[in-house]
Amino acid sequence: MTDGPVIPDFGKASSCVAENRLFCPDWVRDNWGSVLQPAVVQHVKLTVIAVAVGFVIAFAAALLAHRHGRFERPFSVFSALVYTIPGIALFQLLVPFTGLSILTVEVALVGYTLLIIFRNVLEGLRSAPPEVLEAARGMGLTRRQTLLRVELPLALPAIVAGLRVATVSTIALATIAAFVVPEGLGRPIFAALRDYFKTEIIAAGVLAILLAIAADVLLVLAQRALTPWASARRLA
């Protein structure tokens, strides 16, 4: 820290930072607490909120579509349309309505999760074999009991698989959101891109990648824990 020049409004920079070498561990060490760690926490928050809200909406819609087939198409078409809007465009287009706020980011992120979760939940609910449904009816289970005790447990792997894809893609999209609303890991990425400061680009980029992979692994583990019968079958 003490061997380099002094940059105005910034303080002392190491010669590594001043020369903008590929990667300066000292910068990461000095700015972990003030820049990187808060960005990671913020990113996790953005993602968790978006996936949770998206899940509630898409899950309800899938239940409805499962019960009444005619609701499938409208929701499917709507969510697919949202899904095709390029991320950078949607974040900017929402600003006139929701302002330069977290709300803008969340509305867009929630919108992108809908299609994936809806499709997976619905496909999962429909994956119950006819024999099983027949058996449930034979045992005298009501429609609601069949859903809660037969169809939903059988749909669980597909539901968690959908949550996985939704979570990792939300983590990715949330980095792009920072172009419009400086929040999360995209904030240091865009800031560093503006100044072409390599260390910060690499540090924040790697953190975003690690976060996505960590979320993916966590959800696989959750999937295994929630569906022990699936791994038993895999072993058989």
Binding site: A172, K198, A215
Partner: peptide
């Protein structure tokens, strides 16, 4: 495939810029 799907595209492009 799982890791690849998890890669945030902006992060990958940013890393490419750095290198």
């Amino acid at each position: 495939a799982n890791v690849g799907r998890a890669l945030p595209s902006l992060a990958v492009i940013a890393l490419g810029l750095g290198f």
